[in-house]
Design a protein around this nucleic acid. Structure first.
Lengths: 131, 131
DNA sequence: TTGGGTGCAAATCTTTTGCAGGTGT
DNA sequence: ACACCTGCAAAAGATTTGCACCCAA
């Protein structure tokens, strides 16, 4: 099993994600990392995002609008994606773990995770809609 | 606005989806369509799947495990994806529309849709796990 | 006749990976 | 030193698109 070794790139990526309340894509992370490490490669960003998600330090929101987004908040919570601007927003819903229990009742597999996503038009885009 | 014109390919694709209880990917649809139309192109399959989803005759399950799946069942229902074999299975959960209402309470955007997804190991893969 | 539909192939876009050299421990 | 990590570039996959021709209305 691979032993984790310190890497300043990985630390920066994690720190960057923690300070964002939106949910950047790998590409956005990459663009921001370039300010600190001009030679950082997109591959490194992808590798670290994936690694951080694997060890549970960040959360991967798989393919929201066709692209993966990454979330520094690791507690279960749901998301909303605007169909117009593709922004991804946190939803402050109450605990939804009862979904898990309900789902497990008639199900013979083993459920380990779930995700709830909402779609529509965000507040900002609603305002601009009459243009 | 485009006027819809009959196309036997599109009809076959729709019919194929209706008869499947799993949730084929575009590629699987393509392979099956080739039996009927040996010269059909993958582009045509994608165009029609996309069109059918737009007019609401089928449902697109965006990027389940990295790939889009398509569902002939259009009523709201949730899905389970096996992390091992990537199979997508229908979940017979009760009506979850209360999620929509709850979510809308503290939200200023306009929510039009939602999706609930479960992940884990399916029954079949559980059986084969001790190999 | 006309505009949508098709097949084909090339292009796009996102994400992954092989490799040679760099770096943390 | 050893194993992990990085940058670079190429590869891999999925999906989209331009184009010339075909076909339904």
């Amino acid at each position: 099993m691979a032993t984790l070794k310190y890497s300043r790139q990985r630390e920066s990526i994690k720190e960057f994600l923690m300070t964002r309340k939106d949910h950047p894509t790998a590409d956005v992370v990459y663009e921001n990392m370039k300010r600190i490490y001009p030679n950082i490669s997109l591959g490194t960003v992808y590798r670290n995002l994936s690694l951080l998600a694997d060890i549970g330090e960040i959360r991967k929101l798989p393919s929201f609008g066709g692209v993966d987004h990454f979330d520094g908040r690791i507690e279960q919570h749901s998301h909303f994606m605007c169909n117009k601007c593709c922004k991804v927003i946190d939803m402050e819903s109450e605990n939804l773990d009862h979904l898990l229990e309900d789902a497990g009742k008639d199900f013979n597999g083993e459920i380990s995770d779930y995700s709830v996503r909402f779609f529509g038009i965000c507040e900002d885009c609603l305002k601009t809609e009459n243009n």
